[in-house]
């Protein structure tokens, strides 16, 4: 049984849901089963957004058994093979889903919640966030994804495609780059720019 679970998190408007949709459509493209619930309450209103992406595929000769290959809409605690977080503090907030082998991709640009803005709470320093994340797993990879997109493409529109490239480079995704790019071509305008962004993500991650 091939089984790979990804938790994507971010803030409303950052594209966490779209990122999950690309990864799920890639599964349909390849004939894998995929499932995963989303938390979208408060989307576009500075609320927390998460997307569960759960790949499942029977290997040759395997017989379907719902007890042995369970796939509800939610990844259990400690169950994420990969986390992609578009915001640093949200990665830590969702640490509950990480295990010692999880691969974590974190965008380093902090988005300040209202509680911090009005001075009631403090946003933890990035170093603290990363140190704490490393207690969950050694596989924590922090990248300036916003900055990479802005510097290379003069906009923030490529952050998700860059993150996809990083996911492909650092994780053992059961979907191929070709499938992901084919979905990106169908879903987003300006495929050439997105292909470059994907390649940039891969290069940066492997760099």
């Amino acid at each position: 049984m091939i089984s790979y679970d990804i938790l994507i998190c971010g803030i409303g408007g950052q594209g966490a849901i779209s990122l999950g949709t690309v990864l799920k459509l890639a599964a349909i493209h390849e004939g894998l089963d995929v499932v995963g619930a989303e938390r979208r309450g408060g989307a576009q209103r500075e609320g927390i957004v998460t997307s569960n992406v759960r790949y499942r595929k029977l290997e040759n000769g395997e017989v379907a058994d719902e007890r042995r290959a369970p796939a509800s809409g939610l990844i259990p605690a400690g169950g994420a093979d990969m986390m992609i977080s578009m915001e640093p503090m949200e990665a830590l907030r969702h640490g509950r889903w990480l295990n010692e082998n999880s691969v974590v991709i974190v965008n380093d640009f902090p988005l300040t919640p209202v509680s911090v803005r009005i001075g009631e709470r403090e946003y933890p320093p990035l170093e603290t966030v990363v140190t704490r994340l490393r207690e969950f797993t050694a596989g924590v990879h922090v990248f300036p994804i916003d900055e990479l997109s802005r510097r290379n493409f003069n906009s923030l529109r490529q952050v998700n495609t860059i993150a996809l490239g990083m996911a492909s480079a650092l994780g053992s995704l059961p979907v191929s780059d070709e499938s992901i790019l084919s979905v990106v071509r169908g879903q987003f305008p300006d495929f050439e720019t997105n292909r470059e962004a994907f390649a940039l993500g891969k290069r940066t991650a492997l760099g």
């Binding site: 408007g13 259990p76 605690a77 169950g79 503090m89 509950r96 295990n99 509680s115 207690e135």
Partner: peptide, 24 residues
């Protein structure tokens, strides 16, 4: 795997500032 994740999360992520939502 679960008890470790739940334990660590309580210790390391329990004190983060909340996000309560705001107007766009």
């Amino acid at each position: 795997r679960m008890t470790r994740a739940i334990g660590l999360s309580g210790k390391l992520a329990g004190d983060l500032p909340p996000r309560q939502g705001a107007f766009c």
